[in-house]
C-alpha cells in the first residue's frame, strides 16, 4: 500500500519536474495575468487585434526593432488579402539579393516573398543609433522571455517613476517588470500614438494588448493548426486508450 502511494507520488513528481524550475523572483513583482484570445486549449488569434498590432509595430516599434523571421507573405495569415499584402510589401524598399551588372547592391520595392526589412543594416548601426543598446528582434520575443505575452505587455505598460532612493543610471528608464528595473528603451507607447482604421481608441493598454497579440502570432504562427491537430490527436488517443484497455482486459481474462 505505501508502495502504491509512493509510486503514484513519484510519477506525479516526474510530471511536475519542470515546475522545479523555481526561477528566483528577484525583487521583480509577479506579472499580472492578461486575458489573451490565444489562451487555452481552444485559443485562436484575434485577427482584428493582430492587424491593429501590426499597425502599432509598423508605426512605432519598427523604428528600432526588426522582425527578421517574418516575410510579407506571412501577413496573409492575419487576414490581409493578396493585393493588400502586395501593397504593404511594395511600400518598403528592400535590397535586392544580387548586385546589378555593375556589381553594386541596389534597392527595389518589396515583394511578398521578401523578408520584412529591419530599420538598420546591422547590429553595429543599431547600437550607434541607440546609445550602445541593441533593440532586440521582435519576431521571437514572446517565446524568448519568461512570462511570454504577459511579460511583453508588462514591459510596455510598466513604466513608472522610480521609487525614492532608487539609483537610476543616466539614459535609463525605470520599468516595474524589467529585471533590475532599468531598461534602455524609452516608453514607446503613449495614448493616441496610432490611429486605428477600425476606430478602436488607441490607449496604451489597448495598443500594448494588440501589439502583443501580433507579436505572439509572429513568434508562433502555427498555434492554431497545432491546437486543432492536437484536439483531434488527443480525442483519437482517448478512444484508443479505451479500446486497448478493453482488449487487454479481454485477453487477460483467461490468465487469472
Amino acid at each position: 500500500m505505501p508502495n502504491r502511494i509512493c509510486s503514484a507520488a513519484v510519477l506525479g513528481l516526474f510530471l511536475c519536474a519542470p515546475i522545479l524550475n523555481a526561477r528566483a523572483a528577484d525583487e521583480t513583482p509577479s506579472l499580472p495575468q492578461q486575458e489573451w484570445s490565444f489562451d487555452g486549449v481552444f485559443g485562436t488569434y484575434d485577427r482584428a487585434s493582430a492587424q491593429r498590432g501590426f499597425q502599432v509595430y509598423k508605426e512605432v516599434c519598427s523604428a528600432c526593432h526588426p522582425v527578421r523571421h517574418l516575410y510579407f507573405r506571412d501577413l496573409a495569415d492575419l487576414g490581409y488579402s493578396e493585393d493588400e499584402v502586395k501593397a504593404i510589401a511594395s511600400s518598403y524598399q528592400v535590397t535586392n539579393e544580387q548586385p546589378n551588372d555593375q556589381g553594386e547592391m541596389y534597392q527595389r520595392p518589396g515583394r511578398p516573398s521578401d523578408r520584412i526589412p529591419g530599420p538598420f543594416p546591422n547590429d553595429q548601426a543599431a547600437r550607434a543609433a541607440n546609445n550602445g543598446a541593441l533593440p532586440p528582434d521582435l519576431s521571437m520575443i514572446v517565446k524568448a522571455r519568461e512570462g511570454g505575452p504577459d511579460y511583453v505587455y508588462g514591459i510596455l505598460t510598466g513604466y513608472k517613476e522610480p521609487p525614492a532612493g532608487f539609483n537610476l543610471l543616466a539614459g535609463m528608464q525605470y520599468n516595474v517588470y524589467f529585471p533590475g528595473h532599468q531598461i534602455a528603451m524609452p516608453p514607446p507607447l503613449s495614448d493616441g500614438a496610432v490611429t486605428f482604421a477600425d476606430g478602436t481608441p488607441s490607449t496604451v493598454p489597448q495598443m500594448a494588448h494588440d501589439v502583443v497579440t501580433f507579436l505572439t502570432w509572429a513568434a508562433e504562427p502555427n498555434l492554431e493548426p497545432r491546437h486543432r491537430t492536437g484536439f483531434k490527436v488527443l480525442l483519437f488517443l482517448l478512444v484508443a486508450v479505451g479500446v486497448f484497455y478493453a482488449a487487454k482486459r479481454k485477453i487477460w481474462a483467461t490468465a487469472h
Binding site: 483519437f236 478512444v239 484508443a240 479500446v243 486497448f244 482488449a247 479481454k250 485477453i251 481474462a253
Partner: peptide, 23 residues
Amino acid sequence: NGETRRDFLILTATAIGGVGVAA
C-alpha cells in the same frame, strides 16, 4: 459472445492502431 466480443475488440484495436500509424 465472449469470444466474438474479444475478436471484435482485437479487430477494433488493430484498426485504430492502423489508422493511428498511417496518420
